[in-house]
Design a protein around this nucleic acid. Sequence first.
DNA 1: TATGAATGAGAATTCATTCAT
DNA 2: CATGAATGAATTCTCATTCAT
Lengths: 209, 209, 209, 209
Amino acid sequence: MSGDTLTEKKDSTIRKILEAATTVFADKGFAGARVDEIADQAGVNKATIYYHIGDKRALYARVLHDVFGGAADDIERNINDNQTPEKKIVAYARAIAQTVERHPNMPRIMMYEIASGTRSFPDEAAKDLIRMFVKLAMILEDGVEKGVFTEVNPFLIHFLAVGSLIFYKNLTSLKDQYMDLPEADRLVKYLSTNAAGEIEKIILKIVQR
Amino acid sequence: MSGDTLTEKKDSTIRKILEAATTVFADKGFAGARVDEIADQAGVNKATIYYHIGDKRALYARVLHDVFGGAADDIERNINDNQTPEKKIVAYARAIAQTVERHPNMPRIMMYEIASGTRSFPDEAAKDLIRMFVKLAMILEDGVEKGVFTEVNPFLIHFLAVGSLIFYKNLTSLKDQYMDLPEADRLVKYLSTNAAGEIEKIILKIVQR
Amino acid sequence: MSGDTLTEKKDSTIRKILEAATTVFADKGFAGARVDEIADQAGVNKATIYYHIGDKRALYARVLHDVFGGAADDIERNINDNQTPEKKIVAYARAIAQTVERHPNMPRIMMYEIASGTRSFPDEAAKDLIRMFVKLAMILEDGVEKGVFTEVNPFLIHFLAVGSLIFYKNLTSLKDQYMDLPEADRLVKYLSTNAAGEIEKIILKIVQR
Amino acid sequence: MSGDTLTEKKDSTIRKILEAATTVFADKGFAGARVDEIADQAGVNKATIYYHIGDKRALYARVLHDVFGGAADDIERNINDNQTPEKKIVAYARAIAQTVERHPNMPRIMMYEIASGTRSFPDEAAKDLIRMFVKLAMILEDGVEKGVFTEVNPFLIHFLAVGSLIFYKNLTSLKDQYMDLPEADRLVKYLSTNAAGEIEKIILKIVQR
DNA sequence: TATGAATGAGAATTCATTCAT
DNA sequence: CATGAATGAATTCTCATTCAT
């Protein structure tokens, strides 16, 4: 076996672990996730995780960096600094939507993190998040300078975008579970909207003068 | 009056337990919470929790119902059906803000719940949530009928209100932890806004024609 | 309220407790029985048991004495010393059958006791048991003296009588549970015999020369 | 050979656990047994039991199957179908005696099970029991067909054999505990008989025409 | 590199018993 | 005499982590 093959094998083991870990952490949060379940889902022995990556916390840090680093990259790649602020803000909203599509676990991990007060958020991942916020802040500030945007808090905008998408993603289960409760049928029609599109419009409406 | 005293004592024990549980669940989520910690914080023996309420999951259900039921009550109490849609939507935003003020743990518990896909959301609490959504949907529909509102998804609005507040509440810790990371200083100024006020304005802007 | 009424009330409380305790101990054994369950089944508060009778072990001793004392009384009452040994041994078998009928929990409690090595058998109840064995031994010895019985171990005879009855009583559940297992149908016909009658005949056959 | 060694080690761990569990369950019954005690007696960590076997109930099921399966095997191995019914029934009685000798815990576990109404008897073990009963039923039916046996209930015979042995095994402790009670000395001479021999004779006497 | 086995330190839950009223 | 509340001490079970191979 050549060195390359070995490396590939190693890479694929690590990749399997990270994929499984991402899913499980997104599903259960850090505290609710079980190393056993991650190992099972990755199809490797539990000890292999410790061998390649380290303990549960290290694995979590690695997952967060992968997820948020990837998201931040996506966003930076998709926004052309030479566009008008309007174009850029729409591009941002779309990048978020696309990121959520490609990393469907990211929003839930983020929610768990925010809910827990980000007490255990690893620095690496925090840097990734800050990259995203800074990017958005720059777009908004550019819009204000050019007189087309009103002043808005970038955290709020980001969260509106991400949070709403998470919400839609997860409401489907609510629908199945609770729609037989009284009055709940009044709400059914609101559950099947094109989330990404609506959010794009709303964000534009908010930031514009 | 010994009956009264007994009942009061029981009530106060249960109240102490629920208060402690609410705090701990909000802080750590269901999986991260420890029954031991809840008992300690309530100043009762762990077995007392099992005696009065039941197992960890039952305790969680009870907390959710208390928190969301209280929130739904707040909202219903604060909105006068005879007002104009604009007044009502502002009242709604304020009721949410006030609720979050009075039940400071509610938003985080809700985030944990949404993050986990509400897989284990107890029916009681689900009914409370639905009451809130229905109320909001009625306000928005009334506004559309009267020609003053554009059509917007009530889930989105509710989540915008609640989510933003949660975000603000929790960002403080982010600030303390990460503000020495590069570029992070660009974001400092956005951390100290009057969240409730901003959100009120934004919601009004979104729903109005 | 007169003293009598009070005493009656007390008696009835104690009786309710003992009845419930007998059932539960017979069902679950000493270790498996729960004081809570006994209290529930007796319709009294758990503390009432401690007030009237004492702790779990005291309650158990009381139950054993009631059960075995009653059985020993039954046996002594039913056997006329002036009869022939054959008549007496049949009377003994019938007394056992009748006792089991009237104290249906006795056999199971006894089985639990034997299984556990009678490590915790209270002296009071032991005396009752010994009374029964002595009675039986005397019948058998009388028969041997008179030349109509062969020498047989009274423990063995007693246990054959009691044990077989227990077995029959409990096999009914086996039938319901396991009769769909392979080959089990071959055994069905043996489950519905008249246990008491068969045992009477067998005992007579064993002891006779 | 590392694979072999591993397997051996695993087997020996599991064997140690099962041996300890058999003893403790026989001694205390299911409810009275403590997983801690079993682990201690097996010389393994408590978690090892859960790792290899599962929870307390699974361990119990495994023990029952081991014990009753072994007993059923013993019986089948020791009975030659070509013998006369008399020889076979004696062989059966001896197989039971030998089984009890080799699995000294089996009778007590069986007593606990019967006492508890076999409510939780695992199917695996039930199959083993049924194998034994079927074997005995076949011997008896063969004897009846050949005109040498009278019709007798196989359950009763089996229970007579097993039950009597259990009784003898356990009476020793009775002797030590209670022989100072009044009249008890009359019974002493019955405590030291050759149980196996007596039972063999009795069974033969019962089944023969 | 990978794994099955093993374990210590928890964590949830149960239960007999006590106590104030 | 009776009870609801409360609790300490188990008891079962779980889980992250380590280790020998």
